[in-house]
């Protein structure tokens, strides 16, 4: 679809050299004050070089599977690094007030300096509230789906309601839960339970219907009972749906726990830290906390993807790789 490959295949090393060298010069320049027009021209040049490098990498015809995989990681990484560099250059070059947007180097420094606090918040919010709520909510949703599945009447009644509730702003029950379960982590876990329950219920119910009629008939000819059909056919067929719910819920859970902390919390926790440090205008600390949240979110998502890959290796969507 894109233009002739010849034009971009030329000399990726040149753009790489310009990008890396230019970036080094620019970062050195920042320390020496006095930035002129040349600084911004060079910034633009580095940006273009990085863009060109990304294009060259993306267009590169790679036969070897491993090389293609490295490329698939390298291109977005390059994009991210460019973004970080531009962020650093713009905030420091234009002397953006620290309250508005601190440069990444400063956030990293804050991050490194306040590791104990960040870890305490992480333990309070993620290890206690999110994990407990996530396991309870997803487990309950899954089990209830298995039960409801036995009654078509209940299924027809619950499915539309479950779908509706999945679209509702469930985070809103946070103040109620804080009132019921107190300020500490159980109230946050309760919010997470309610938020994760319905997506799991709806997805599992949909997944249990995913097995084809042919396979079901086959199980019937084997005289397999409900239990055997469930374990050997329908649950494996439902796995992609279940993992979809697990992934959706991993983000929802973190959001639920953090937002619930805005309504009242002991003096530790990620949501608490964010609102307090924001009140003190310590934006770098807020950003450090956001990095923790982003890291936790991405890692749990990645972990789920790996587990999904291992347990649903038979699924057609993985075949082409």
């Amino acid at each position: 679809m894109t233009g002739p490959a010849l034009s971009v295949r030329r000399r990726p090393w040149l753009s790489a050299a310009v990008a890396v060298g230019g970036a080094a010069v620019l970062l050195g320049w920042l320390g020496n004050g006095a930035l002129g027009a040349a600084f911004w021209v060079l910034t633009l040049l580095v940006w273009l070089a990085a863009w060109r490098l990304a294009a060259q990498l993306a267009e590169m015809p790679l036969r070897a599977r491993s090389a293609a995989r490295i490329r698939d990681v390298a291109v977005p990484l390059l994009f991210g690094l460019t973004l970080l560099l531009l962020w650093e250059l713009l905030t420091r070059g234009l002397a953006v007030p620290r309250i508005l947007l601190p440069p990444p180097s400063e956030i990293a420094a804050t991050f490194a300096a306040s590791l104990p606090i960040l870890w305490a918040d992480f333990a309070q919010t993620f290890l206690k509230a999110v994990l407990a709520g996530y396991v309870l909510g997803c487990g309950a949703g899954f089990l209830v789906a298995l039960l409801v599945d036995r009654s078509p009447f209940l299924k027809r009644g619950l499915l539309p309601i479950g779908n509706l509730v999945s679209a509702l702003p469930v985070v809103g029950i946070a103040p109620v839960m804080v009132m019921w379960f107190g300020f500490d982590w159980p109230s946050k876990a309760a919010v997470v339970v309610v938020m994760t329950f319905f997506p799991m219920l709806v997805n599992t119910l949909a997944g249990l219907d995913a097995a084809g009629a042919m396979e079901r008939d086959l199980m019937r000819t084997y005289a397999a009972g409900h239990g055997a059909t469930l374990v050997k056919l329908r649950l494996p067929a439902a796995l992609p749906f279940v993992f979809n719910a697990l992934k959706i819920n991993s983000t929802l859970a973190l959001i639920g726990a953090i937002v619930a902390e805005f309504f009242g919390t002991p003096i530790v926790g990620m949501g608490f830290r964010i609102s307090v440090e924001m009140g003190r205008m310590n934006t770098d600390m807020v950003w450090a906390e956001i990095w923790v949240a982003a890291l936790a979110g991405s890692l749990s998502y990645g972990l789920l993807s790996v587990v999904e890959r291992l347990s649903t290796f038979w699924h057609p969507s993985y075949r082409k790789r």
Binding site: I290, A293, A294
Partner: peptide, 12 residues
């Protein structure tokens, strides 16, 4: 971007 709990950033 969606694995970042953006709502946490809302106050900021």
């Amino acid at each position: 971007s969606q694995t970042v709990p953006i709502l946490a950033v809302a106050p900021m």
